[in-house]
């Protein structure tokens, strides 16, 4: 029977978890290889693979969010569907060491995200000169680097590490910090003076997915 996987947690994860998941299906807690895995089962996987449903994604996130409030998790991308319990067991058998390592390393960390965007679309250099074109691009990049540096300075020691991604209209900054530093981070960030012409949106705390090393296998 197809299995939808929500996330993995340490086997010591609390026995209290959201009982209803995507499509109103029950959420089960399966223990394997010293890990707790949260899954739903259905005789077909139609409910999970139907055309992109905002509702399904919300239901999926709701399960993750409730679990993450009390325990560190390794979330799976929606929809991660395995053919059945046998495939799930085989997967955990091969990946359990990696999952345990990640849970141990990042167990007390959370991730906060700050998205900074320009109110206006970045200007495409209007010039005949190739040199001017490249210089304009370089200046645009430097402006964003300065904004990120300002944010990092304000957040200070609350943050363990940062990841920054460039976007067409701005930057996405991910901060990894200890769960108990979130208040400190939020308070610090409120003092940040946002540059003119930009807007910022914060979200979190989330599992530290941005900091997980890419699985080469």
């Amino acid at each position: 029977m197809p299995v939808l996987v929500y996330c993995v947690a340490e086997a010591s994860a609390p026995l209290n978890w959201p009982r209803t998941g995507v499509g109103g299906l029950p959420v089960y807690r399966v223990e394997h290889s010293g890990l707790a895995v949260f899954v739903s089962r259905d005789s077909t996987s139609d409910v999970w693979t139907r055309p992109a449903g905002r509702e399904s994604v919300l239901e999926f996130h709701q399960v993750l969010r409730q679990l993450f409030q009390s325990v560190s998790i390794l979330p799976f991308r929606f929809p991660t569907i395995l053919s059945g319990d046998r495939e799930l067991a085989a997967h955990l058998e091969s990946a359990s060491q990696r999952y345990k390592h990640l849970l141990e390393k990042y167990g007390t960390s959370v991730q906060l995200e700050v998205l900074v965007s320009a109110l206006e679309k970045p200007r495409t250099p209007r010039t005949e000169s190739g040199t001017e074109y490249l210089r304009t691009r370089k200046n645009q990049r430097n402006e964003w680097n300065e904004i990120v540096a300002g944010l990092e300075a304000v957040a200070g020691s609350a943050v363990i590490e940062w990841r920054v991604r460039s976007l067409p209209k701005g930057v996405r900054c991910f901060a990894r910090l200890e769960r108990d530093s979130v208040e400190q981070f939020n308070a610090a960030i409120k003092t940040w003076k946002l540059p003119a012409g930009c807007v910022a949106r914060g979200s979190g705390p989330w599992p530290v997915t941005e900091f997980f090393p890419l699985d080469q296998s």
């Binding site: 929606f78 979130v182 914060g202």
Partner: peptide, 14 residues
């Protein structure tokens, strides 16, 4: 900051 730091699933990305 325009908005407070509140959980907001990135639906589009998911």
């Amino acid at each position: 900051m325009q908005e407070s730091l509140e959980p907001k699933p990135e639906l589009e990305a998911s």
